[in-house]
Design a protein around this nucleic acid. Structure first.
Lengths: 242, 242
DNA sequence: CGTTGAGTTGACCATCGTCAACAGGAGTGG
DNA sequence: CCACTCCTGTTGACGATGGTCAACTCAACG
């Protein structure tokens, strides 16, 4: 799968054919729709481009829109009153934001790097969902998949030590990139900061840094400018073992 | 709401009227169905009674059935190869098991106390779901609600200390019992063991015991035979503050 | 060339885990 | 009826993992 799929692209495109030609379609919720339905969807869609650090939406705010991420990485997080942050997930291209179709957002979302996303008014989208059971079925599949990932993350947060958390994180991201690119690679891009990784894994930035560099010192990984390269796949997979 | 709703009851009932008279219906997925549909559901239902410690299903095993818990408490958990356990949730009356409608179970489930559950063959149930978009919509609501609870639990596991975890747990259970009984109470039944609480909160049994007894010593709660009674609601709510 | 922000590293420390002993109730068998 | 075991929960002593605080490097940027 070409890299253009996951790189931002905000050039205007000829109306009525954007969704049909979208390379991410088979991986996104849109796969549930036929060509006619795609055109209905496109009529209520708006291609939205965000710069790094831009906010898509904030927790508890009225949920005016739902989103389909088409390029870049989004961090999803909850804040405690005293400022502690827990990242509940990273949304990659193909991921849908607003699965709950609820009145208010359950978490905050902002762009880690330049992001493009198809934005739909929640009202229009839920209208479409109500008329298209196949789309609802697809949303439900996405929701239960997210639930399963959340359960895995609960195991990581509740029962694994720092090295295991970092290992599981790398393997988890590797597999998600593999799905997106159509093939697995030992090169794992990490668009998020050490602080983001720490807030996802329930650790501190220092522990993440130490753990990654320990893995590098023992030749399990190499730290490269935009992420890591896995040298000893078996070792990392053992750390992340279910 | 009467307590009979949540107490096991395995007497045979006259066919065709069980679901219609089920007091849990408004709280369960069945609320999406009209009387005719309920009778269709009942035809593929089987009231299942389990003793304490009985297994409903195990992780990775083919998902032959889905369940509606009608009485008792079920623990849902994942195991690591070395035996570490993470409880990903407790299912109370009204909760649905098998939301994913997937080929295999994503976690194991067993009865903490005597449990009754309506059991459906997954095949028959998914057939009904495919014919009834309202039921699918209801399942989706349940799934996104579970996802939201999972996100809350991720915050607890990733970013909260022992006292906050225990406090959040008590408030969370209090609110779930309140929903079930129709009114809130300072009496919070704890049908699960200290070990279960520990494995849910990412702590050890000793830390759970110490934390509960510290709360009792400072007169925030009283430990009673079947759970706790909250004396200082404000204190516990402050601990569990979002 | 100075500033800023991300990341790294070291020294120290607190929280929670580990290990061990013990209490008390339920169930069992003599 | 009592002695015994078993199981759950409690409590104390100690230690390790990961957090805190601080200093430092380095690249990007004005």
């Amino acid at each position: 799968m070409a890299d253009t799929l996951t790189k931002p692209n905000c050039r205007p495109l000829e109306p009525g054919s954007v969704c049909v030609h979208c390379g991410l379609r088979p991986l996104s919720v849109c796969a549930a729709l036929d060509i006619g339905e795609l055109q209905q969807l496109e009529m209520v869609a708006h291609v939205h481009c965000l710069t790094a650090k831009a906010t898509l939406f904030s927790q508890d705010e009225p949920a005016q829109f739902v989103y389909n991420v088409t390029a870049g990485t989004v961090r999803l997080y909850k804040l405690l009153p005293d400022g502690r942050r827990q990242i509940v997930g990273f949304a990659l291209p193909g991921d849908f934001l607003g699965l709950a179709l609820a009145d208010r957002y359950g978490f905050s979302a902002d762009a880690i790097e330049p992001v493009t996303a198809c934005r739909f008014s929640r009202e229009a989208f839920t209208g479409l969902v109500d008329r298209k059971p196949h789309l609802l079925r697809r949303l439900h599949e996405f929701a239960t998949h997210e639930l399963s990932l959340a359960h895995d993350q609960m195991v990581i947060l509740g029962r694994r030590n720092a090295a295991e958390r970092v290992g599981s994180f790398l393997i988890g991201l590797r597999d998600r990139w593999a799905r997106l690119h159509g093939h697995s690679s030992v090169h794992v891009p990490l668009p998020m900061s050490r602080q983001d990784i720490a807030d996802f894994l329930g650790l501190t930035i220092e522990t993440v840094s130490r753990t990654l560099n320990r893995l590098a010192r023992e030749k399990t990984i190499v730290i490269v400018p935009d992420g890591v390269r896995i040298l000893n796949v078996a070792r990392i997979e053992a750390l992340s073992e279910v």
